[in-house]
């Protein structure tokens, strides 16, 4: 049994457990499952007097749970990689350990931060929680997440990867 835990988990178990985050967050905290707004709250906590109204006029203390949640995610990543994996997990391909790779991560990260905030959510808040609640703008957002991903992978693929 424990050996099975140390292997990558099957898709159906993974899917069920991720899906249970939706009711789990509501039942245990009363909050909707979502992650990308943490970027904004971290910004507001670090630069409360920012010249940017979006950062300054945001009550990060009222949303502290979101930062606590992502600290938990990081801890969970640590536990899973070092205590619950038979072999170290290969997160990024070796090619990303290069100057070009670092620039790609940095610039790609800018797109993730800008895009999720402009869209008002990411894969968790829109694709999982939003669609679970039959929120049609979340379905549109998810469709365009894939449009962007397909453009990058198929259109820019030969340049990037």
């Amino acid at each position: 049994m424990f050996n099975a835990i140390l292997q990558p988990w099957p898709w159906w178990l993974s899917g069920i457990l991720i899906g249970l985050m939706v009711p789990g967050m509501y039942l245990l905290s009363g909050k909707g499952f979502g992650i990308s707004s943490s970027l904004r709250h971290i910004g507001s906590a670090c630069t409360p007097n920012s010249g940017i109204a979006y950062i300054r006029e945001n009550d990060w203390r009222a949303n502290l749970w979101n930062i606590v949640f992502i600290v938990g995610i990081a801890l969970g990543g640590f536990v899973a990689n070092f205590f619950l994996s038979a072999a170290p997990v290969e997160f990024l391909p070796a090619s990303y350990y290069s100057l070009g790779g670092f620039i790609q991560l940095l610039l790609g990260g800018v797109l993730v931060g800008f895009g999720t905030r402009y869209a008002g959510g990411c894969t968790s808040g829109h694709a999982i929680n939003g669609i679970s609640n039959l929120n049609w703008p979340s379905m549109v957002a998810t469709a365009f997440f894939f449009v962007g991903g397909l453009i990058a992978t198929w259109g820019l693929g030969s340049l990037l990867f």
């Binding site: 991560l105 993730v112 895009g115 957002a141 962007g148 990058a152 990037l160």
Partner: peptide, 21 residues
């Protein structure tokens, strides 16, 4: 933003291999 931001996030998702979580 759902359309424009969504597409921009998708680009970043494919490049970095990571969404925020």
């Amino acid at each position: 933003g759902v359309i424009i931001g969504g597409t921009i996030f998708g680009l970043g998702w494919a490049i970095t291999g990571a969404c925020p979580g």
